[in-house]
Amino acid sequence: MRGRRALWFWVFVGPFALGLALFTYVPLVWSVGLSFFDARNTVTPTHFVGLDNYTAMLKDDAFVDSLKTFLVFTAFIVPATYAFSLSLALMVNRVRRARAFFRSVFFLPAACSYVVAALVWKMSIFNGVRFGLANTLLGWFGGDPVAWLSTTDPPWYWLVIVTVRLWLQAGFYMILFLAGLQRIDPALYEAAAVDGARPGWTVLRHITLPQLRATSVAVVLLLVINAFQAFDEFYNLLSDARGYPPYARPPLVYLYYTALGQGQNLGVGSAGAVILALIVAIVTVGQARWLRLGRTDADG
């Protein structure tokens, strides 16, 4: 009986475990190995260089800049998405009619590809010539066209980058918040009303937000991890005709260029990836501790 169970366990789990090992763990370990070698244009290097790749990466201004880009991006996108998706959820939760319709409409962008959305943002909404959508709007008010993605001072490109991701992901987090909102006991609101709490800010501040604590923690954690993984929209919005993004490169875009692009420096690229993985791990563990992940709403 026991043997039979084990067999079925492997029948169902085996293919997945095999794929995971082959396509995730082997490359992972291989990449850690590569990071200690001088690996240019080869995945089977012979020249061991110790920690040289790591020091090269940490001394590289462009890599340090990419970490700064990530910080700025996170500082914009995490609060913006949190506030926007929470407001959407509160609104959708309150409508009495066509709730399913609004829920679907706001969730719909989540089904769109990052690449496609980035191209729409780049070529039609925020292109720099006078007939782009944003510039047409500016023109009605007498403004001069702005080259949104090409202007670093002021850095208008952040507006493009943040809005495209906001549009794409707000609907998904709205669903998470909606689920959280629907789990709040209506009796709490009734009790608050009886105690004289006015609907609106007071109720939101003292009932809704504390009750959403667990959802909020999960949302913030997911948002930060997603920001770390940012690649598609940065690469597609900012790279030039030859596929080189000249600025605002988050870590993955920079590593992609170093290791897999024309650079083909797999040793240094792997060292960067290991450093990045360590940073993600530390930040996530720290954040989970700090926000007390895993506690239920009632503990909050």
Binding site: A62, S150, T151, Y244, P246, Y247, G261, Q262, Q264
Partner: peptide, 17 residues
């Protein structure tokens, strides 16, 4: 490519910033 990206990043900063 490493020389190219160092030069191009600098040129980008000179022109734009």
């Amino acid at each position: 490519p490493a020389a190219q990206s160092a030069y191009q990043d600098a040129l980008s900063r000179i022109i734009r910033s």
